[in-house]
């Protein structure tokens, strides 16, 4: 289908389309930009603020100036929080990366290993139960698991904190601080793991089962290779590509799920920032977070296209194999 250069072009066009949409949308609202952005929000602009804003907007009209402003990290100002949008995003980003990154790595690695092992033992009682259990779990949305974990572990048992990313206003040593962050991470992380692990497990198992009947495995076995080497170095390699492809297709939905989970646990990442911005109708901040996340999704997908080529030489030569 598409070559690497074609993909790069497609993603650039998609990114430009997103930026253009975010540039265009406020202009379609009734009234001029300033009334449109601020009339409905829970903040009132002072006369001097309004004049300054108008002056800035008139100086920076046009799509080219908008692009330039984005490039120089001038993403506008959140009037509800009285801070530059880019600053707020960069402040929240590490928390989201910590949560989503850890959850994704764990869900992928555990799902891969569990799926490969399950396929190896297919037909057994444990494998059947695993497949059924994971299929059921695939039907449970993040909202459900998140709220239930919150009720059980934070409220009824009181083992873990109900919200936040770290305990505020306390002096901790380094080890205690790490432990504190991990304790706050536990519940949102568990929610995302429960949401993301089943799909990875089921896909890894199904792809592995397709590989198992092939004759190159008989060759590997006949060479006298140890079973673990046959299983992972020869068979399970072929599971990596479908898993990477699935990640590319699922990533946008994972972001949606992470937004919700962060909100449930008021985790101080982009999701909670967005939730609060929506509540206050803080349009510049909403616009900034949405644009930033969309560009991040596009960037990750573009990186993945490069990874496909490394995982499967067929992709490198002929475009995508699937």
């Amino acid at each position: 289908m598409l070559t690497w250069r074609g993909h790069l072009l497609a993603y650039l066009v998609a990114a430009l389309a997103m930026v253009y949409l975010s540039y265009l949308l406020p202009g379609w609202l009734p009234g001029d930009f300033v009334t449109a952005m601020y009339a409905d929000s829970h903040v009132a602009l002072g006369d001097d603020q309004e004049a300054a804003l108008r002056e800035r907007l008139e100086a920076g009209a046009g799509f080219g100036a908008y692009l330039l402003a984005l490039g120089t990290l001038d993403w506008g100002t959140s009037y509800a929080l009285r801070a530059p949008v880019s600053e707020l995003i960069l402040e929240a980003l590490p928390w989201t990366l910590l949560l989503m990154g850890t959850a994704h790595v764990l869900a992928t690695v555990l799902g891969f290993i569990a799926g490969v092992e399950a396929a190896w033992r297919r037909g057994g009682r444990v494998e059947r139960a695993g497949v059924s259990g994971m299929t059921v779990l695939q039907g449970v949305p993040e909202i459900g698991t998140g709220v239930l974990l919150l009720m059980v572990f934070a409220y009824h048992l009181g083992w873990l904190p109900a919200g936040g990313g770290a305990t505020l206003y306390v002096e901790y040593g380094f080890a205690e601080q790490v432990l504190d962050v991990l304790r706050h991470l536990a519940l949102p992380l568990a929610t995302l793991l429960l949401a993301w692990f089943p799909g990875n497990f089921l896909l890894a198992r199904a792809s592995m089962v397709l590989v198992l009947g092939q004759s190159f495995l008989d060759t590997a076995r006949a060479k006298g290779l140890p079973p673990a080497r046959v299983r992972y170095a020869h068979a399970a390699r072929n599971v990596l590509l479908p898993m990477a492809t699935r990640f590319g297709l699922r990533f946008a939905f994972m972001v949606t799920g992470a937004l919700v989970v962060e909100t449930i646990f008021s985790y101080p990442g982009l999701g909670t920032l967005l939730f609060n911005a929506i509540g206050a109708r803080d349009l510049p901040l909403i616009q900034g977070i949405v644009l930033f996340s969309a560009l991040a999704v596009l960037g990750v997908n573009l990186l993945l296209e490069g990874v496909y080529g490394r995982l499967d030489p067929r992709v490198r030569l002929h475009g995508r194999a699937l």
Binding site: M18, L21, L259, I286, V290
Partner: peptide, 24 residues
């Protein structure tokens, strides 16, 4: 049509929905 499909697959739908819902 397939290039258009590639383009749409790359754009995260939820972000466009959030933007539209918040503004209009």
């Amino acid at each position: 049509l397939m290039r258009l499909a590639d383009l749409l697959l790359a754009i995260p739908a939820v972000m466009i929905l959030i933007l539209l819902a918040a503004f209009y």
